[in-house]
């Protein structure tokens, strides 16, 4: 019931936010969207202490709201910037789950490389949203209904599974949840000791029993030691070594492909008859188009 209301509210708000009629106050669509996010978030159980819940909720809200803004804004420049905010929220959630390396890699790759390339490309066109195709959408009501229906089905499944009191079976039987007591592999602990304590002087003063005891306690109560960067690297370069090589080949192929695509001499398109009813004419191809742009 709550999920249905959230789906309808969210679809309505997104439909109102999407650009399809320029003379309209689009910002009123934020009210149903925020209400839908709140209704969906109300299904969650509280997460540990209030600080835990506040941190995770802030990152989730940041990702979701900036994703809504990125999808629905009229200006492509702001779309790219809001996408950067989405990536920052996602990176915060990844960091919250204990994956430090991935959080940093996400920020560096997405915001540092991909987003800058997008911004560079956006500067070619009109980044202020003056184009006619930025002011319209393909069937905004149907697409927002479909998307929110997906969210509703998924959240209903999650609520059923969680409400039955039945935890997902993978943790109950073979896998262990991430706790400090069940942390296996003394090899891993031994390898992480200089990393986690952060000082090589700990190893030198290791003979001193007083100095060694706090270090051991610190290691024992670090709950995220399993997802540490060292374990990620070990898993990456032992179990997934072939996949890493394939990904390296993929990146090389993408680099070569982009170079080949860009480096070819350009053959301009000629005489594409634009279909009737399509008002966004391509600009600057033929003198007729230029004259028509000047008239309109």
């Amino acid at each position: 019931m709550v999920a249905t209301a959230a789906v309808l509210l969210g679809a309505m708000g997104l439909w109102w936010l999407l650009p399809w009629d320029p003379v309209r106050r689009r910002r009123f669509g934020w009210l149903p969207v925020v209400a839908a996010i709140g209704l969906l978030a109300a299904q969650l159980k509280p997460l540990g202490t209030w600080l835990d819940g506040a941190l995770a909720s802030i990152f989730s809200l940041m990702a979701l709201i900036s994703a809504v803004a990125a999808v629905t804004t009229r200006k492509p420049l702001y779309c790219a910037l809001w996408f950067g905010m989405t990536v920052l929220g996602t990176a915060g959630l990844i960091l919250y789950s204990g994956a430090q390396f991935l959080a940093v890699a996400t920020v560096v790759v997405y915001v540092g490389a991909i987003l800058v390339t997008f911004l560079f490309l956006l500067m070619l066109d009109r980044p202020d949203g003056g184009e006619p195709y930025d002011r319209t959408s393909w069937s905004p009501l149907v697409s927002s209904l479909i998307g929110l229906a997906l969210v509703g089905v998924l959240s209903a499944c999650l609520a059923r599974t969680a409400g039955r009191g039945q935890v997902w079976p993978v943790a109950a039987t073979e896998m262990h949840p991430l706790t400090a007591t069940e942390m296996p592999a003394p090899v891993a602990v031994g390898m992480q000791a200089p990393v986690a304590t952060g000082e090589p002087s700990q190893a030198e003063t290791g003979r001193h029993p007083v100095a060694e005891a706090p270090a051991a306690d610190h290691m024992a109560e670090t709950p995220t030691a399993v997802t540490h960067t060292a374990d990620l690297g070990r898993s990456l370069y032992i179990e997934y070594f072939a996949a890493v090589q394939i990904v390296a080949l993929l990146l090389l192929a993408a680099l070569l492909g982009a170079t080949v695509i860009i480096g070819r001499p350009l053959q301009p398109l000629q005489e594409i008859p634009s279909p009737p009813g399509l008002t966004s004419e391509p600009r600057g191809i033929s003198p007729e188009n230029i004259a028509q742009q000047g008239r309109s």
Binding site: L14, L18, I37, L40, A41, Q43, L44, K45, P46, L47, G48, A56, S60, A63, L64, A67, V68, A70, V71, T72, P76, T86, T90, L93, S97, E131, Y133, D134, T136, S137, W138, S139, P140, S143, S144, I146, G147, L148, L150, V151, L154, S155, L158, A162, V167, W168, A171, P177, L178
Partner: peptide, 28 residues
């Protein structure tokens, strides 16, 4: 941990659906 997983799955589903809406409806 189950609560945290629930949180992450819901946020991930929301981001996926928002991206799908954008892909279906935008023209740029």
């Amino acid at each position: 941990n189950a609560v945290l997983l629930h949180h992450y799955l819901l946020t991930g589903a929301g981001l996926f659906a928002l991206g799908m809406i954008g892909f279906l409806s935008r023209r740029n």
